[in-house]
Amino acid sequence: MKLKRTFLILTSLLIVGVLALGVLTVRWYNSYFPSLFKAMPGFVHALALDKSQVVYYGLKPTKLSPNGNYYRDRVIVLMYHDVNPEPQDIKSLSTADFERQLELMESNNFHWITMEQYRDFVLHRAPVPDNAVLLTFDDGYESLYSHAYPLLQKHGAPASAFLIASKVGDRKGAFPKATWNQIKEMQQGGIEFFSHTFDSHSYVPNSPNKGDLKAKLAHPMYLKKAGRMETEEEYEQRVTEDLRHANEVLQQELGKPNYALAFPYGAYSDPLLKVCEQLGIELTFTVKSGLNAPGQKNGYRLNAGGMDNNPALQIELMKLAEKRLAVDYSPFLSIGARKAVFLSLTVAVLLIGLLWLRFGWLLVRRRQSGFSS
């Protein structure tokens, strides 16, 4: 009886452990498994901490709400890249759809704020309007100057942009970058500019395997000539030098100290957050969807750009932000803490699984012995 009881206890523990791993996978790592959303969209939407993949699930446009109140003491930060009359890339938003977004925000009682207001809100709990929205643009494309900036001025909408300091004025590729003269003109017109690194907006090898690439700013890189990974000290020194250089260039060109950084690809690490703090970078931004609260220095951003964007659904999502984007912010849910918890639980489940197999085999052997006798 003791053997059978032990097997049943192990079976119960194994079921609970596997279920817990499944829940944490959906909550923390669902973006690695897009098939999960296709198979169980409602379940993923209910559990996911990063709701970037599922925020539009089941949405339908509703009537205009010129006096609507959707959230307060919170800020939605919207993220854009290229804005173009004829988008040629999946991350490009048409100028028509961008202007329609702005019109719908105005018609539905959303209120644009500046990065300075956002900073005071996050760091000092300064009040912001109900339904507050911060508009942000990544990479410093010339299309910000040519197409988005005129519409922002037309609607009186402030915005912030994150520059790759080493690429300003670069005309190569499908998305030429704005020049310093264009950036300074936009700055005079109310656009604020901040860091998107000096030259760390790329993927680098994470092992000798060519296909194993990770975000340059967020991870130690594989040093091919040395045949080894960067040490933690080398990694921190590299990102410190890059971000400090970006800060210096922005200060020199724009006459203002830099205090905000958008992580390339939204990727970051706990050591990187510490480096930012040491360099006076008070605010950082990911690409995860969520509502931003006071004290939340590492902010969420909702991707509002892209060829597949539907302005009406975009606004409906923002109206339902408290249900669709709400995330309980906690400094204890750091990347390192989540990895430690997930790894510990995985090891525990594996050990329980091995014990379950052993006791199951012993139980089978006992029954076989009983039958043979």
Rank of each mutant, 00 (worst) to 15 (best):
R244A: 10
G353W: 04
L152H: 05
T240F: 02
H196P: 03
T62P: 01
S330F: 13
P85W: 02
G227D: 03
V44C: 12
E86R: 13
G68L: 02
R5F: 03
S107E: 15
I15M: 09
R365F: 03
W28Q: 12
E233F: 05
A46T: 02
Y80P: 04
Y118G: 12
L8Q: 14
V204N: 07
A226F: 00
L49N: 10
S200K: 05
S166Y: 00
I76K: 05
L59A: 08
H124L: 05
R228T: 07
V327P: 05
E103V: 14
L325N: 03
S146G: 01
S195T: 10
H219S: 13
V364C: 15
S52D: 12
M307G: 05
E253C: 04
N131A: 02
V77H: 05
V249D: 01
L261S: 01
E282P: 06
H201M: 12
L363G: 02
D212K: 11
I15W: 12
L144T: 01
L93M: 10
V204I: 10
S373N: 15
H111R: 10
P331F: 07
D270N: 07
L47W: 04
E253W: 06
D138S: 10
R324E: 12
V133I: 13
N84H: 14
T114S: 06
N131F: 00
L362M: 10
D308Y: 12
S330V: 10
A321Y: 00
S92T: 14
F359H: 11
S143F: 05
I90E: 09
K2G: 11
L134F: 02
G306Q: 11
M1T: 01
R119Y: 07
Y118C: 14
S202M: 15
A348S: 08
P311Q: 06
M1C: 00
A48M: 01
W28F: 12
D139F: 03
V364Q: 15
D138P: 10
A48F: 00
Q252Y: 14
L144R: 04
L47E: 07
F263V: 01
M40K: 01
L78Q: 07
A39I: 06
L325Y: 09
V204W: 11
T95E: 03
A348H: 02
D120T: 00
Q251W: 08
H155G: 04
E106K: 08
Y141L: 06
L21E: 06
